[in-house]
Every structure is written in C-alpha cells, then in structure tokens.
Amino acid sequence: MRLEIQNISKKYDKEKYGLKDYSISIETGILGLLGPNGAGKSTLMKIIATISQPTSGSITLDGVDIAKEPNAIRKILGYLPQDFGVYPNLNAYEFLEYIAAMKGVGGSNLRPRIEALLEGVNLTEAAKKPIGTYSGGMKQRIGIAQVLLNNPKILIFDEPTVGLDPEERVRFRNLISDLANDCIVILSSHIVSDIETIADEVAIMKKGQLITKGLQEEVIDTVREKVFESIIDSGDLAAFKEKYLVVNTIRKKEQVLVRYISDSPLNAAASCTASLEDAYLCLTK
C-alpha cells in the first residue's frame, strides 16, 4: 500500500498557506509527523482524511486519486481528529453504532466488536451512560475505539495522546505498533517521545512545508556530534541563548546546565548523544 502526495498546496487566502508545494510518499508502517503549531500537520491529515480538498497537487492511494474519489479511502480509514466532539445525548454503544454506520460497517458481528472495543478501552461500565457525562480522557478513549470499528488500513491520529495518562500512553503506543503491521499509520504529536518510541519514519514540517523525512536515525544524523552540555552562570543565560541554539536548561542554584546544538561548543562542553528532539528543535528553529 502506498500513499503518494505530490506537490500539494492548501491556500486559505492570498497570503496564507496551510500547506505549500508539499510532497511525501508514505508506505506501510508508522510515520510520525512533527512540527510546531501552524506547521500544517492537521491540514495534511484532514486532506488525507478527505475532509479537506487541496488547492493544487494530487494525492493517490495505490494509484487512485482520492481527491476525486474520496470514498475509495473512506472505507478503510480510521481517523482520530485532534478536537473531535461527540453527541452528548447518546451513550457509548449508540455513538459507536452510529460511527460504524458511517464507515459502512454492520452485520451480526458489529455488536460483539463494539463490546470488545469498549472492553479494550475500559468503558464497558460506563457504556450505557450518556457520553455528555464523560471526562476528557474517556472521550479520547471513545475516539480510539471508533478508529478500530472497521478494519482500517489507513490510520490517522492527530495528537492522540492528549488526555491519556502516562501508563495509557504506553498502552496506546503498543496498540499503534500492533496496528502498523499491514497498515499505514500517520501520527502527529507535540510529544516527541511518543513519536520517538514508535515511529518508523519521521517527517518534520514547518510553515506548511516538509523540512525533512526519513528514518529516525537519518533525521538524528543532522545533529549528530553537535549536541553538547555546558554549565554556565545564570546571568549569562540570555547572552548564551543569543549565540547558541539551546534545547534544554536545568537550573542548579546560581548556575545552569544547558544543552545546546553547535558546531563550535564552549571549551569545557561535554558531548551528548543526539536525540530526535534535538534534531526537531534544530530543524524547526
């Protein structure tokens, strides 16, 4: 399975682009999307999910133009949007049945599948209560359950770990890893560690454009041997930040331990192992 995005632009007005001349090829596996706010991650995901149409460019799934034939992807799509809502007067069963109908899923196995999913997201006990009474985390879990109602082959998760506690985030990452065996999974997150742990490939975006895409190691290579740590006086921090790209600071009484990226570090600097977060911050600075 291959999702081919070629020279896509999404123009909102004369000056403002959500995406600009964006091309990427996505194959089976997990692609992590990283980028600051306004980078165009959600716009890209909406276009792939067929709820937004590109101003120009093409997007094909195994050769089928999904901008022209959106129903080709909708049958095999699992989409968890960032700010999705629910119908508060429906309970979890009713809501999932409704979403299943949207996806074109039914039959005698639908009810057992919904029950299994509700069990999986641990909402069986609350399943008959109106969703309007659910907490944010519970709604997020309903969102996760709806993704799996059909047997999705394209999974799009926009900031999926919002509302989940650390333990749940680990379980969710495991779930995504399981799903990725024969699917395309596109995952965006502000939490670099979520992407770092599970993504096969990483795409870094900025201002609607693709900065880089590749295997994690390839992305990290851009800052390898350039990440250092030094201890400086607190008073010198502002001047230091002007000179170097500081990725982290840890305050220690009157001094500060700074982690920074540079080709010419301070004399007493300690070299550090580069991480995806270092590469991300360097590429999007």
């Binding site: 039959g107 907490s135 799996l148 109602l149 379980r171």
Partner: peptide, 24 residues
C-alpha cells in the same frame, strides 16, 4: 466519570482478536 476513568485505564487491545464486522 473521572473516577471511572481513573480506576479503569486503557487496556491492551488485541486488534487481531476483535470480531470481524461485515460491510453494511
């Protein structure tokens, strides 16, 4: 709801073991 959420976090979902629903 929060009590329910806290007491019953997300479980491990075995995707391959889910009953397969048909097209409708």
């Amino acid at each position: 709801a929060v009590e329910l959420a806290t007491n019953h976090p997300l479980k491990d979902i075995q995707v391959t073991q889910l009953p397969v629903a048909s097209s409708a």
